[in-house]
Amino acid sequence: MVERFPMPIPFGWFFVSYSSELAVGEVKPVHYFGEDLVIYRTESGVAGLAEAYCPHLGAHLGHGGTVDGEMIRCPFHSWAFDTTGACKDIPYAKIIPPAARKPGCLKTYPITETNGVVWAWYHPQNIAPMFEVEVLDEVTSPDWADPIRYEWVFDSNPQEIAENGVDLAHFKYVHKMDAVPEGETHYDGHVRRSLAAGQRTMELPDGTVRTLDTEVRTLQTGAGQKSTRFKGMADLLLQVIATPVEHDKVELRFEFRHKKMAADAPEMEMIRRSIAGIIGQSGVEGDIPIWHTKIHRVRPLLCDGDGPVMRFREYFAQFYDFEGGPAARVAAE
């Protein structure tokens, strides 16, 4: 029997909520990294992510749990835990058990909040964060408009999605696009940068045709965060955010941002067209049916027009903990 994905869940920073979708005092059940989890925001505005089940008698904190100051309280016996997972209060007990007072009594995840996203650090061995989330200045700029967001859930994993960008041959056959230039790519530790520049002939909304200098810059910083900046008729920023639900199921989010402009501006129509192309059959929605059903070939049979697939896999292999087993180790070779 063929195993679809022999690699484990990669480690790194991953989306667990948009910042705007987690209010002060709110508690939500979520499921990521193969685990039932609870996400909440304390009264001072700090986001927390923890295992869902209370270490006392196993109640689910995401169903009836409440925020109390900087703590989350269990709905069963009202035990209260801070964002480190240490129990700070048991209302009916004279003494909190020593094991309960220690950070990590309730398993928690490191959290950072930037780019309008609550990011959680996942590592199967609970190793502390090894790098930071890249900050995107456009997100907080007053000159840029509110985001435009899309979301999909399907059977795949972050590597398959990220690898798509270096699979040059598929653009013609899946997306019906002309040849895509490989451009320049540089690897530096957990960071991958690429630049593809050239000219493109476009028909403008008023019917005129212009040849424009275009530029696509991509920055990948780990398994769960990638940003692409498009320059041409108008500037466009795309956050590509992939979060593993299980090792073979993923949530994928595309968040677009552009400079503020009038709704009837010619540039606005070009942005609408660009977004439609990126998310439609000529973009990600052409890929999803293939990702949803394909397997990961550990040793693919490649030819000279396929693009730098194996170099990309060498880069991505650093985000796996190979305690996942021999098959996971082979996947990176």
Rank of each mutant, 00 (worst) to 15 (best):
F230S: 07
F230D: 03
F230R: 07
F230M: 12
F230T: 03
K231Y: 10
K231R: 15
K231H: 12
G232T: 00
G232R: 01
M233K: 06
M233A: 14
A234S: 12
A234R: 07
A234H: 08
A234Q: 10
A234K: 05
D235G: 06
D235W: 02
D235A: 09
D235L: 07
L236D: 00
L237G: 10
L237F: 13
L238S: 03
L238P: 01
L238D: 01
L238Y: 01
Q239F: 12
Q239V: 00
V240F: 11
V240I: 13
I241A: 01
I241H: 03
A242D: 09
A242M: 10
A242W: 03
A242E: 06
T243I: 02
T243R: 00
T243S: 10
T243H: 01
T243W: 01
P244N: 05
P244M: 06
V245K: 11
E246H: 11
E246P: 01
E246R: 13
H247C: 04
H247T: 12
D248W: 02
D248Y: 02
K249P: 06
K249N: 13
K249I: 04
V250M: 13
V250I: 15
V250H: 03
E251C: 08
E251S: 11
E251T: 12
E251R: 15
E251G: 07
L252Q: 10
L252W: 10
L252V: 10
L252F: 14
R253N: 11
R253F: 07
F254D: 06
F254R: 08
E255P: 00
E255R: 14
F256W: 13
F256A: 11
F256T: 09
R257F: 07
K259V: 13
K259P: 10
K259T: 13
K259C: 11
